[in-house]
């Protein structure tokens, strides 16, 4: 009986979503890992420039953005659970709230960029702003892609395209969105908190 149980247990361990999405997530995490290391190494070489640059950032917006992405992730996981429980209307509601929090992130980040540009800071100001805009801008584009994907799956949930045993597409999008959240969890302390 034991070997059968072991086989069953092994077979039941599945990745949420498609393997292709997880390979993509792996590539994205690797790219960001390199950017994080480049940022940290550059900070080690130019501590004064980075300290001065970080002091100009609006950490309150950074904090609110962290809250927004964490909340969005929470509503996305609730949406997936609702589809698995055949509660389609709840799933749509959760997805719409998740999209709302994602949009809040985009608006807040755009305000922050506007404030930086208005104050005369740009990509060519110094090495700090070069990496700040590169890192956060790259992540910002990922948030927008995630929002497009969430907006794409919401009508599919409404149309009952995902059913109790068929949630792979939705789980792939959810996994991507959680990855975007995890990346911000590293970015937030790296750029805003650790001076």
């Amino acid at each position: 009986m034991q070997p059968d149980k072991a086989i069953t247990t092994h077979a039941s361990r599945q990745l949420p979503g498609d393997l292709a999405m997880w390979l993509f997530i792996g590539a994205e995490l690797t790219a960001f890992a390199l950017l994080f290391m480049v940022y940290a190494s550059s900070r080690a070489l130019h501590p004064e420039v980075f300290a001065q640059g970080q002091s100009q950032l609006n950490s309150q917006i950074g904090l609110l953005n962290t809250m927004a992405l964490l909340s969005s992730s929470y509503f996305v996981v609730n949406a997936v659970a609702s589809v698995k429980a055949a509660r389609r209307h709840w799933a749509i509601g959760h997805l719409l709230v998740a999209i709302g929090f994602g949009l809040a992130y985009v608006v807040l980040k755009s305000i922050e960029y506007y404030q930086s540009f208005s104050a005369g800071y740009g990509l060519t100001t110094n090495v700090f702003y070069q990496y700040y805009f590169l890192l956060t801008g790259f992540h910002y584009l990922h948030v927008i892609l995630g929002l497009i994907l969430l907006t794409w799956v919401t009508p599919k949930v409404a149309a009952n395209d995902y059913t109790v045993g068929n949630t792979s597409g939705l789980e792939s999008v959810a996994s991507y969105w959680h990855m975007v959240d995890v990346l911000w969890l590293v970015l937030f302390p790296l750029v805003y908190l650790l001076h």
Partner: peptide, 23 residues
């Protein structure tokens, strides 16, 4: 701050991404 970051990322991976049941 870094330990808190690790804890938060672990919660997201295990419980939100659902990797607790992954290979």
């Amino acid at each position: 701050v870094l330990l808190i970051t690790v804890v938060k990322a672990t919660v997201i991976s295990e419980f939100f991404m659902g990797l607790a049941g992954a290979p």
